[in-house]
Simulated scan of single mutants.
Amino acid sequence: MPLTQPDLVTLRAGCKINLHLEITGVREDGYHELDTLFFPLPKPFDIITISKGAAGSGLLLDCPGLSIPPEKNIMYKCWEKYCAATDWKPDLEISVEKGIPDGAGLGGGSSDAAVMLNYLNKYCPKNALSPESLNALAATIGADVPFFLNNIPAHATGIGDRLKPSDVSLSGYFLVLICPDVSISTPWAFAAWDKAMLTDRMSDNKKEILTTTTSKDRKHSSRALWLFNSFEVVVYSAFPKLRAYKDKLMAFGAEGAVMSGSGSSIFALYREMEQAASAATALEADGVATYIHHL
């Protein structure tokens, strides 16, 4: 029995970090093969308000935090694809208050898309999609979208779309997430990585991107927690102040620190709240948006 669609609902779309992100190859179609570990965080978050629209109005989308036409928004794409898959075309008015910065590597757009798909599937009066079909549809919208549908830690391969739940635990850690006022384009980051590989700069700088405090056995296949990001060497070369922020996080006694996604956000793990609070205060003094999570 389908649920009755509410007149108005307000939802939160959280974010994600990548505990590790390794680019393992490039496919013939140009997409990059990844090995990454997604971990959800409740903040920063976007606030999505969805209400019933006037009959025949279609989707009216207001997202002042992004300077793109509504028809180019990933949520509009979700609505179009879901309508095509189920023959249900609800008239909706949606307002998005952005709290997740764009170009930060936190998956804000993908998170919004997953909230949209879950909403549509929850209230679809007939032909609602199975979890497998919804996941497949999500993968056609964005590589990170399937992860956000379930929003639990997951190991991802392929282009980030082949997911397996992970039992990774950060229990007891204090996580400091910083969001510098720098927007990094993911296509630019991949192109910069490709160029670095061609010029063989990556091998010369490998030691600069290893980010845990010990030097032994960093591979995630043999470590419960392995902090690494293939993008760091190229992003830090282009944005040296991001490397300086990471160094500052480490200086306050972090167990490790690493960039999320293609940047520009960086997170650090601390054993003690006092360390985390001191690091957050120092970064806030630099004008950097900062969030503390007790995991």
Rank of each mutant, 00 (worst) to 15 (best):
Q5C: 15
P6H: 09
T10I: 14
H20N: 13
G25A: 12
V26H: 11
Y31D: 09
L37E: 06
F39V: 03
F39C: 03
P40N: 07
P42T: 07
K43Y: 09
D46G: 02
S51H: 04
K52S: 05
A55L: 07
G56C: 03
S57L: 02
D62N: 15
P64D: 02
P69I: 12
P70C: 10
Y76K: 00
K77M: 08
K77E: 07
A85P: 06
W88H: 03
V96Y: 06
I100F: 11
G103H: 12
L106D: 07
G108D: 03
S110Y: 06
A114T: 07
A114R: 01
L117K: 00
N118R: 12
N121C: 10
N135E: 12
A136F: 08
N150M: 08
N150K: 11
A154S: 15
A154M: 12
T157C: 13
G158R: 00
R162Y: 12
K164D: 11
S169T: 06
F174V: 00
V176H: 02
L177T: 04
S183W: 10
A189W: 10
A189S: 12
A191N: 14
A196T: 05
L198D: 13
L198G: 13
M202K: 12
S203V: 14
N205S: 14
K206L: 15
K207Y: 14
D217L: 14
R218M: 09
L225A: 04
N229A: 10
S230A: 12
Y236E: 02
P240I: 01
L242Y: 00
L242A: 00
A244I: 01
Y245F: 15
K246M: 07
L249S: 01
G256E: 03
A268V: 10
E274C: 10
A277C: 05
S278E: 06
A282E: 06
L295G: 01
